[in-house]
Design a protein around this nucleic acid. Structure first.
Lengths: 242, 242
DNA sequence: CCCGAAGTTTGCGCCAGAGCAATATCGCGC
DNA sequence: GCGCGATATTGCTCTGGCGCAAACTTCGGG
């Protein structure tokens, strides 16, 4: 139920950032090398441990971020201390873009799911980015649109599907976003606990554990501590349609 | 469970639109009378019966809309035909703003909950509006931000609250958005069925009916067919916190 | 190598709320 | 004023999955 609050990320400015970090990322892909240089020179870079908070729900939105490497979970914490995961963000996406939707504070907490590398800029630069950099605004809003779609899907799932289907869907989505092909199947390439999955699917870690056990018996998945490998994706898809 | 699809809105261009329709609405409030005139001249206006679809999920987003009067429910329909209400939109807000989030199609269906009056413009004008009209973009994104917040809240509610709390919350939200003060309480000022409420809270009409009956016995609400009046809002708030 | 913390598995009982079904009521159209 | 379809109420049953509890496994640190 309640989870320990993990804390404080070690700040660390990396030597010097290379332009190639950004050139292939959608929000920046239409920009000149020179522009990217400017952007990088204004950025700070930070490494976060796994489980660290990049920003917290309700904090003033002083910076916006680009996740260079790792995974981030966007979670909300209820008055009773339960966590609900609203979204998973893979490397290469912006986060903390409260400004884009006219907010002064972050609407949710962002926690790293693995060790992660993050760039950030002060929110005061947001308007400049939007105005000066071709494609930045439109790509950002595309990301936003995608997230809205995901949230919508999650609402529909929560409203209509059984737990088994939700868990199957969640795993499939993780596999799609972050699957790594391995011997005998596809693995979610970051550590994920039963607890994490239960927060993602609005159930308990017990139920998730039972489901995984049962699937493992049937040969659909294999899982060790914090690792899940899907051996028969198609069967999972069938399950998820229920 | 499944609902009849109601259909086709009667098109009707009203005589001539008055500038005062828009001057006080946030997206247009900073504009000159002259600009508003231009905007109105490009708009078409339409009246929809209660229960009509303004646009459907998946349709190409050819127009965007401003709800002048009435209420609109934004719903998604599952493969099995169940409806899930994602959002309620009161008069004075934009809808169908797929373009704002980089989408080419509408992500959900918008159905009127009452007879409604709607203005619309071709999506091709979107960029012009954003570029030419001061405050239009920022107000739009504020609306969007607000909706994202609502969706988030709904996810958390679905994930953590009991049915009774969800129904109480839903009613309170409707009262806040659209409450009309009447003799002995506050009433939701559009017709809403048990079925509608169940789609809003991801439960069944039976359960909603039972809850309302029980609340009525305790004097918290009074309800007739399609009408709900809250007599003791505070008690409902207490319930909703559970 | 051992210990403790974190993560996982599994059994059991229970209950909120869904499903089913029958009946009652409302209000519109003719 | 009547009849029918849409809406609402209520009783009964059945079950998914949660809460609780206890044991087991894995891993990292000293």
């Amino acid at each position: 139920m309640t989870r320990a609050m993990t804390e404080q990320p070690t700040r660390k400015t990396l030597p010097r950032l290379d332009e190639s970090l950004l050139t292939h990322l959608p929000p920046f892909s239409r920009l000149e090398k020179r522009q990217i240089r400017t952007i990088l020179d204004q950025a700070s870079s930070r490494r976060y441990e796994s489980g660290a908070a990049v920003f917290n729900e309700g904090d003033p939105a002083e910076r916006f971020y680009m996740l260079l490497d790792g995974y981030v979970r966007v979670v909300r914490i209820t008055p009773t201390g339960e966590q609900v995961t609203a979204l998973h963000i893979p490397a290469g996406q912006l986060l903390g873009i409260a400004k884009a939707i006219g907010r002064e504070t972050y609407p949710a907490t962002a926690m790293t799911a693995t060790e992660s590398i993050v760039l950030s800029w002060p929110t005061s630069l947001w308007d400049t980015f939007v105005a000066e950099y071709d494609g930045f605004a439109s790509e950002t809003y595309k990301t936003l649109g995608h997230r809205v779609g995901e949230m919508n899907t999650r609402i529909v799932e929560l409203a209509t599907q059984q737990v088994e289907q939700r868990v199957a869907n969640a795993i499939l989505r993780l596999i799609n976003q972050t699957g790594r092909k391995v011997e005998g199947g596809i693995e979610i390439d970051f550590p994920i606990t039963r607890q994490d999955l239960s927060e993602l699917t609005a159930t308990t870690l017990h139920t998730v554990s039972r489901l995984l056990s049962s699937w493992e018996k049937r040969g659909l998945v294999e899982s060790k501590r914090k690792r899940i490998k899907v051996c028969d994706p198609h069967a999972l898809v069938v399950l998820s349609q229920g």
